[in-house]
């Protein structure tokens, strides 16, 4: 289980995250929803060790991973597909995927996983030798998720997988996310602005607003919640 206690993140004098608590049980899909600037990406980056925390703790299976080097966190099985599909545009699709497996030493396993992600996203196989930068937005998102999967994570952190993608593809990608969770039992922490979509696939949800968690609950209950509907579902 991934557990966050009283997490605080500061950018200079700005307090982006002001003491949040979060639990991601093994095998579940947990979503963190909230509007722009609420601190969702900061939270994910802190889990990955890309930015330093100002206080609080992040533990994974009881082990403290707060402010560990990103390399070590990836090795422990927590990998992120970053916001805005930060793929390596000068590397081919295949090379991008191999970069995802950078921390792994088992060559055979990497080969198998390459086949696995290709079976999951056949579109990527068609584009295998293409440079990452020439893919469409949706394909880049598939690549970013697949690249994260190549590290064989136990916990997958997804940062806004729906951002800037055609609605039809968004649906496909979310179906894939659920299928992935069902078939491999991978734990997923999903950060989304599209609250409706996120709550429809998640088991549990947290609502983040200006650095604080204002609501939490089972995803289906949150989706019915008056406040959430008003603030995030446009009703």
């Amino acid at each position: 289980m991934l557990e966050i206690k009283d997490l605080q993140i500061h950018y200079g004098s700005i307090k982006a995250i002001r003491g949040i608590n979060l639990k991601v049980p093994d095998g579940s899909i947990v979503t963190l929803i909230g509007s722009n600037g609420a601190g969702k990406t900061s939270t994910l980056r802190a889990i990955s060790g890309i930015i330093k925390t100002a206080g609080g703790s992040i533990t994974y299976n009881g082990e403290n991973i707060t402010n560990l080097h990103p390399e070590k966190i990836v090795k422990m099985g927590i990998c992120q597909s970053p916001e805005g599909r930060l793929i390596f545009s000068n590397l081919t699709v295949e090379e991008n995927l191999l970069m995802g497996a950078y921390t792994r030493k088992d060559k055979e396993g990497v080969k198998d996983d390459l086949e696995f992600v290709f079976s999951f996203f056949p579109r990527l196989k068609e584009r295998i030798k293409q440079l990452g930068g020439t893919l469409s937005g949706g394909e880049q998102q598939m690549l970013a998720i697949s690249r994260a999967l190549m590290s064989k994570p136990k916990v997958l952190l997804l940062d806004e997988p729906s951002l800037g993608i055609a609605p039809l593809l968004v649906k496909t990608i979310f179906e894939k996310i659920v299928a992935l969770n069902h078939s491999t039992g991978i734990t997923i922490l999903l950060v989304e602005q599209n609250a409706n979509l996120a709550l429809s696939v998640a088991n549990y949800g947290y609502v983040l607003e200006t650095g604080e968690i204002i609501l939490e609950g089972k995803a289906d209950e949150l989706a019915k919640n008056e406040e959430v509907r008003k603030a995030y579902l446009g009703e």
């Binding site: 980056r45 990955s48 060790g49 890309i50 080097h69 990103p70 390399e71 966190i73 990836v74 090795k75 990998c79 992120q80 597909s81 970053p82 930060l86 793929i87 390596f88 545009s89 000068n90 590397l91 090379e95 191999l98 970069m99 995802g100 950078y102 921390t103 970013a144 690249r147 994260a148 590290s151």
Partner: peptide, 23 residues
């Protein structure tokens, strides 16, 4: 080389490279 692609990934996107566990 596999190792050398690390250089290119750092140039392409540092945040993404770090997310992949690249030092």
């Amino acid at each position: 080389s596999t190792y050398g692609r690390g250089f290119l990934s750092v140039k392409d996107d540092e945040i993404a490279a770090e997310s992949m566990g690249i030092n």
